[in-house]
C-alpha cells in the first residue's frame, strides 16, 4: 500500500476545501438556514407535528441528507473531473499507485468534506430547533455510509463526464428531485396511497427514513431495509469503480 500517495491525494483535495472555504462551507450553511426559515418557520408554523416530532426538528435529517448527497457528489465528481480537464491526471496515472489508493484518496477527501458539512449543518439546526439524537451510533453510521457511497457515485460521474454540463446533469436532474421527493420534508404517510407506493421506488427515501429513525425513532420503512439499501448502492458503486479502473474507461486510452 502506498500510504504516502493516499495521504498526498487526500491532503491535496482537502486543501482545495480550505481554499474555497466560502463556497465549501458557508454556502451550504446559508442554504440550510434558508430551508429552515422557509420550511421550518413559515410552513412549519402551520404543521404542528409529524409522527409526534415537531416539524422544524422533523426536517433536520432530510436537510442533512440533502446537503450530504449534493456535496458528496459535487466534491468527488469535481475532484476527479478537474485533473482530467486540466490534464494533471497524467501524474496520478503515471505514479506508482493502485486504483484502490486513488479511490481512497479522492473519495475519502470528498466524504470527509461532506461529513464536516453534515456536522456543521447539525450544529446550525441546533440553533433553530431543539434536537435530541436517540441513536448516535446509527446516526454516525448512516452519515458515514451515505457520504462514502455518494462520494463514490460522484467519483463515477466525474470520470464519466467529459464536459462541465454532464458534471451537473445527474446531480441536478436526478439526485436533487429524488431527495426532495424522498420524504426530506414530509412523511410519506402524508401522501395519497398511490404516490406513497411510487415513493417506495425512490432509493433516497430509505436513506432519509433510516437517518430520521436514528434521530427520532420514527421511520417510513424499517431501519434494516434502509441499511440494506445503502449497502446495495455502495456495492454497485464499488463494482462500477472497479470496472472503470480495470478497463481504463475514460481515464486511459
Amino acid at each position: 500500500m502506498n500510504f504516502e500517495a493516499i495521504k498526498a491525494i487526500y491532503l491535496f483535495e482537502m486543501a482545495r476545501m480550505r481554499r474555497t472555504l466560502l463556497q465549501s462551507v458557508v454556502s451550504p450553511v446559508l442554504s440550510t438556514s434558508l430551508y429552515f426559515v422557509v420550511f421550518g418557520a413559515a410552513i412549519g408554523g402551520r404543521i404542528e407535528e409529524v409522527d409526534g416530532v415537531q416539524y422544524g426538528a422533523f426536517i433536520v435529517p432530510g436537510l442533512m441528507m440533502l446537503t450530504l448527497l449534493q456535496n458528496s457528489i459535487a466534491n468527488a465528481s469535481f475532484g476527479i473531473y478537474f485533473p482530467k480537464f486540466v490534464g494533471t491526471i497524467y501524474e496520478v496515472l503515471s505514479a506508482p499507485v493502485s486504483f484502490v489508493e486513488i479511490v481512497i484518496g479522492y473519495v475519502g477527501a470528498a466524504a470527509s468534506k461532506s461529513l464536516i458539512l453534515g456536522i456543521i449543518i447539525l450544529a446550525t439546526a441546533h440553533i433553530f430547533v431543539p434536537l435530541e439524537i436517540q441513536h448516535p451510533f446509527w446516526m454516525a453510521l448512516f452519515l458515514v455510509l451515505t457520504a462514502v457511497t455518494f462520494s463514490l457515485f460522484g467519483f463515477i460521474i466525474g470520470i464519466w463526464a467529459d464536459n462541465f454540463e454532464k458534471l451537473q446533469l445527474i446531480p441536478l436532474l436526478i439526485v436533487t428531485p429524488l431527495v426532495f421527493l424522498g420524504g426530506s420534508f414530509y412523511s410519506i404517510d402524508m401522501l395519497p396511497p398511490f404516490w406513497r407506493d411510487v415513493t417506495l421506488f425512490n432509493p433516497v427515501l430509505y436513506l432519509i427514513s433510516g437517518f430520521r429513525w436514528s434521530f427520532f425513532e420514527t421511520a417510513d420503512v424499517s431501519v434494516g431495509v434502509s441499511i440494506a439499501m445503502i449497502c446495495v448502492f455502495l456495492t454497485i458503486c464499488i463494482a462500477l469503480v472497479w470496472w472503470i479502473f480495470r478497463t481504463g474507461y475514460r481515464l486511459k486510452a
Binding site: N2, E4, A5, K7, A8, I9, L11, F12, A15, R16, R19, V86, G87, T88, Y90, E91, V92, A95, P96, V97
Partner: peptide, 25 residues
Amino acid sequence: PQELHVETFETVWDTVNYSRGLFGK
C-alpha cells in the same frame, strides 16, 4: 510532459511536495 499541465490554484511548494508524496516518498 509536453503540455503545460499544472495545478493552477496551488502553490509551487505544495504541488512539488504533492508529486513527491504521490510517488510514495
